[in-house]
Design a protein around this nucleic acid. Sequence first.
DNA 1: TCCAAACCCTTGGATGTCCTAGTATATTGC
DNA 2: GCAATATACTAGGACATCCAAGGGTTTGGA
Lengths: 169, 169
Amino acid sequence: MGSPLPRDPIADAQRNWERHGWGEVAAPMAAITAIMRTQQILLARIEGVLKPYGLTFARYELLALLSFARSGALPMNKASALLQVHPTSVTNAVDRLEKAALVVRSPHPTDGRTTLIELTAEGRTLAKRATTALNNEVFGQSGFGDEDVEHLIRVLGDFRKAAGDFTDG
Amino acid sequence: MGSPLPRDPIADAQRNWERHGWGEVAAPMAAITAIMRTQQILLARIEGVLKPYGLTFARYELLALLSFARSGALPMNKASALLQVHPTSVTNAVDRLEKAALVVRSPHPTDGRTTLIELTAEGRTLAKRATTALNNEVFGQSGFGDEDVEHLIRVLGDFRKAAGDFTDG
DNA sequence: TCCAAACCCTTGGATGTCCTAGTATATTGC
DNA sequence: GCAATATACTAGGACATCCAAGGGTTTGGA
């Protein structure tokens, strides 16, 4: 999207914050901005790997989630909760995955309000292949050192817990 | 969007990865997923603070960038490069900011291809107020410890540099 | 029993991001 | 000097996310 900048724009922003009397919060601002930008970079990498499989990250996440469910099926609201996205986002993803014959909607056996999302055989196969690709091309080459990975997991885990994502250990 | 889950879904995913023979990359996968989720949480907080000002994060970032430019004006392509987003995203943001009378488009004095984005007086005032709000309500209460902030800045800075964001430091 | 409140999913609308073209202006090279 | 190439912005389209609202189903208390 662009060639490398001569200077780190986030470091510049941090300096600007300090220069304008916001030294107290300049560092957290820089850290948060860096998280936003890193997410952008990672998402682009992931989408690039998934593209040949006809998947986006949102759809892949849903496929992967289903593939780890014993029955290969989950209620939409369960998927929404586990993926931590709005229910309408799941509706959207399921619409497209269903059109691609990777999942099927089926009625819940006992609760008429609930819709189950079920992995098809092709869906399961594609999930496996896409996972292998992501593991090899993204997660296996993240560029983060082992210690940094552990640190990120811990720090961001604490943050997510404090933000109310989950309640356990 | 949902109440807290009983268990950390990312930790669960990491266990699933290990259980399926991907132990080698399970930790980086968890770290990357945590970054994605953290970005989502932070963005929601930021958008929540900006909403009363009629701004989104994308528009705020552009206003803030302009407010730090000496002349209060920047070429669109410069803004695109510094914000590290696609040129069309800047076009989109400028369209809306201009409609809100916070910026003005003006022709570049010597290059007919280039359009300058210029902060209006209202734009500058709103940028200040929004920055104060963000500093007080988000950056000043990030929930990250000082050491963790420094670590994030360093680790993510290295990552961004390796990803080709910039070449200095 | 029965109706109100709670819950589940979908539709429609607003935003943002990117990509692919298309138009206009500059620059370069012969 | 002029054609070919490069650069800058914008229009249109595909996706994703969220919110607000609507219609169907369950649950629970009067």
